[in-house]
Computed example of a mutant assay.
Amino acid sequence: MPDFRYEVINTKGKSEKGKLAANSKLEALQILSSRGYIVSSIKQSASHASTRASMFPASQKEVSIFSRQLATMVSSGVRIRDALQVLSTQVFFSRRFRKIVTRVVLDIEGGMSFSESLEKTGVFEPLFTNLVKAGEAGGVLDESLERVADFYEGMVELQNQVKSAMSYPLFMMVFAVGIVGMISFFILPNLIGAFGGNFQPEGAMAILLSMNSILENHWPLLLVMLVGLLIGGYFFFKSRYGNVVKENIGKLIPPIRNLRNMTAMERFTRTTAVLVASGVDLPTVLELAGEVSQSPRVMKAVGNAIIGIKGGESINAALERQKVFPPIVVSMVAVGEETGKLDEVMLKVADFYHMQVQNALKKLVSLVEPIMILFIGGFIGFLAITIYGAVFAMEQSIG
């Protein structure tokens, strides 16, 4: 059983620190709350951490399919162990994911609960494991899995829209690189050779010919380096550290920054809706929603808001004080608090931001396409001017 270090405000209003053994962070929070404490922070002790987050989490597409299939079988009366055994042999999952499911089956056979075995793998997000834990506690695991599936299917749909939107600009970029390569490696050397070896090119022509010479003499090494760079970049951007780098790069470009902010709000509100509907306690809801948003600003604001909420502040007032959440989110949270339908209200806000993200994607693509065309046309025009200038210079040198 792992240990958790906590900092609380006790019944006398004084700050208190200590350590508590519990099966999970959620259980530790429940124990401290039952004692009348207001929890300021709680973290699992590193020396007793039973699991560590994997650098390469499970893909959202596989988690979406996994949760949907599992929810269908569990709601049909299939035992969780048998359902997982069936899913561990499905070929539409990757080999790595099948091995993970097999380990979960073995842990369940060893006496672990489903949620504990998921946490032990370290590849599933806290959102997934906490929803499963809430479903197990309430005896509605099939409903929790349905909510998980709906959530991840929405995330996968958003990812597919982004990939589809960027496919044309990426194709244009590859096309431009191919044109430059053909001109540099085939046209220019033949052009220089046609005028004899006495001509000494200058400027951009000299740079292109130098690159051509380097590639001709060292192409095996450069090819290996390029393949290694592509493979390394692919796995890096699949990792947690790669997500941080992408977040920082996106901040530098205003349209992408606005798109990422709206995406963060969509994730935050949808996660809040799903967790509240599953009966997870509010501090955990906000903490997990902040993590799923993948926005450092939102995570920091949520952390500050949780402290205010535990001190007796209302949710909408605590969020509004952070100056991070848009007025529509704060207003709808207030409505949800008053009506007791926070999950339904947050789901409507999430749908609103989903539409906003779709519109922003369309605008971004419509902006990127002409920019890419202008860039490619300008670069090809530059090469044409460079070649014509070299031809005129060679004619003068021959004359």
Rank of each mutant, 00 (worst) to 15 (best):
M1W: 00
K12P: 00
G13V: 10
K14E: 08
K17M: 02
G18F: 09
A21L: 02
L26T: 10
A28F: 08
L29G: 06
Q30Y: 02
G36R: 15
S40G: 12
A46R: 12
T51L: 09
A53C: 06
A58L: 00
T72K: 06
M73Q: 14
V78P: 00
A83M: 00
L87F: 02
F92E: 05
I100C: 13
T102V: 07
L106F: 03
V123H: 10
E125A: 10
P126K: 04
L127T: 07
N130G: 08
K133H: 06
G139N: 05
L141A: 15
L145Q: 10
L145C: 00
N160P: 04
S164K: 12
M173E: 00
I187Y: 11
N198C: 03
N198A: 11
F199T: 02
L208P: 00
S210D: 07
L215I: 08
N217P: 04
N217H: 15
H218G: 05
L221R: 04
L226K: 05
L229C: 15
G233M: 04
F235Q: 06
S239N: 14
Y241E: 10
G242P: 03
G242V: 05
V244N: 03
V245N: 08
E247L: 04
I249W: 07
L259P: 01
R260D: 03
P283N: 06
L286H: 11
L286Q: 03
E287D: 01
L288N: 14
G290W: 03
V292E: 00
M299R: 06
I307N: 02
G308R: 14
I315Y: 04
A317D: 12
E320Y: 04
P327F: 11
V330T: 04
K341M: 07
V345N: 02
H354I: 00
M355S: 13
M355H: 08
K362L: 11
L364F: 14
S366G: 12
I376Q: 00
F392Y: 12
